[in-house]
Amino acid sequence: MKKWIPYASALTMVVLAASISGCGATQEDNTPVSEPAASASAPSKLQIETSFYPMHEFASQVAGDLADVHLLIPPGVEPHDWEPTPQDIEKIEKADVLIYNGAGMEGWVDQVLASSNNKGLNIVEASKGLELMESSAEEEEHADDEAGHDHHEDAHEHGGLDPHVWLSPKLAIQEVRNIEAALIAKAPEHKDEFAKNADTYVAKLEALDADYQKELGSTKRKDFITQHAAFGYLAKTYGLTQVPIAGLSPEQEPSASAMTEVVKFAKEHQVKTIFFETLVSSQVADTIAREISASTAVLNPLEGLTEEEQANYQDYISVMRANLEALKKALDE
C-alpha cells in the first residue's frame, strides 16, 4: 500500500486534468499504421483503444475494417512502467472498447476505469479465464534482494502474477478468442465478420504453435537464460525451462547473488547464448556473456515494436518466428 498510495494520487490528478482539458486539441496517435480521419458522412466505426502492441495486433486482426484500432503506449516504449497522460485518458473516455492484457501488466487500468465517466465503454481483459502463473521462487528472491527498486515493486503490486501470456502462441489464441467474443457483444450485427476474421488469424497462430512444437520438441537442451523473466508461458507450453537473470520487470536490477547463481548455472550447463531483449539495455546479459565467454542474442518479448521493426513490416507472427529460430539455434548448440 505504501507504494500504491502516491501512484494512485498522481494518476487521480491525471484523470482530473483529462476531464477539464479542451476537446478540440490535436492528439498524437500511437497506432503503427496511420489512419485517415473519418468524414462526417462516413459510416460510424467502433473506436477501440488498446494498451500495448500484442493487444493492438490481436484486436486489429479480429476487427478488420469494422473498427479504428488505436494504440495507447507509443512505439518503442517499454510498457511495464508506462502511465497514461491526460490525452490518453481522454481517448479512453471517447472509446467504444478498451482492450488490455491484464494479469497486472497494465498497473494503471483499475485507477483509470474507476474514475471513468464512459458508461458505454466495453472493457476487455484479454487474459481473463487463462490459467495464470505466479512468479517463481527465484524471481521472488530477486525482488526481495532489490526491495528498494521502485520499478519492480510498482509494476508488480498485482501479487506476483506473470502477465506474459501472449508469448505462448497457444495462449495467444485464447486471447484472440476473448477479443472476438467482446467485439461480437459490442456490435452483434457484425458477428459473422468478426468470427471470420478471428478464424483466419487463429489458423495462422495454430500453424505457428505447430512449428514451435515441432522445432523445440527435439532440441539438445531444454534450458535457456534470459535477461527478463518474460518467457515462462512459452517455456511451459513447449517443455522448456527459463532461467531468468532478473524478475518479471525488465527494469529490475538483479542482485549480486543472483548474477553469481546464473553464472554458475551457465558454466555447469555449458550455456553458449545469453538472451536479451529489445526496448531495454542489454548490459546485464553482456556482463554474464563476457564472464562465461558466451554470445548474446535477442529474444523479443513483443512488449512493443520499435519504429525500425514497424518500418520493416514486422508483426507478432514474424517476430515470434524469429524468436523460434533464435531459441532453436541456442538449444542445439
Rank of each mutant, 00 (worst) to 15 (best):
M320I: 10
P301L: 02
V319H: 10
T306I: 08
Q314G: 12
A311P: 11
E291C: 03
R321I: 00
I317M: 10
I292G: 07
T306R: 06
S318M: 10
E309H: 00
D315G: 11
E308H: 13
S295C: 00
E307Y: 07
T287M: 05
R321K: 14
A297Q: 11
L302I: 15
G304T: 07
N312M: 01
N300K: 07
A294L: 05
L299H: 08
T287R: 09
A289I: 12
R321M: 14
P301A: 03
R290N: 15
A297L: 06
S295K: 15
I292R: 07
E303N: 11
N312L: 14
T306D: 04
Y316T: 11
I317Q: 12
Q310D: 13
G304K: 04
S318L: 11
V298M: 06
I288W: 08
G304R: 09
T287A: 15
T296H: 00
A289Q: 07
S293K: 12
E303C: 06
V319L: 05
Q310N: 15
V298G: 00
V298Y: 05
Q314H: 10
L302W: 03
A289C: 10
M320H: 08
A294T: 03
Q314N: 13
Y313T: 15
T296P: 06
T287I: 08
A311K: 13
L299K: 10
V319R: 12
D315S: 09
Q314K: 15
E303K: 00
E291Q: 10
P301H: 03
Q314T: 11
T296E: 08
I292Y: 02
T296G: 01
E303R: 02
E308I: 13
T287G: 05
Y316V: 01
E303Q: 09
T296K: 01
T296V: 08
A289W: 12
R290Q: 12
E307Q: 13
A289R: 04
R321F: 02
S293M: 01
N312Q: 11
R290P: 01
V298A: 11
S318G: 03
E307M: 11
V298P: 01
L299W: 01
A297P: 00
Y316R: 05
N312D: 15
E291F: 09
E308G: 07
Q310M: 14
N300C: 03
V298S: 06
Q310S: 15
Y313Q: 15
L302S: 11
N300E: 06
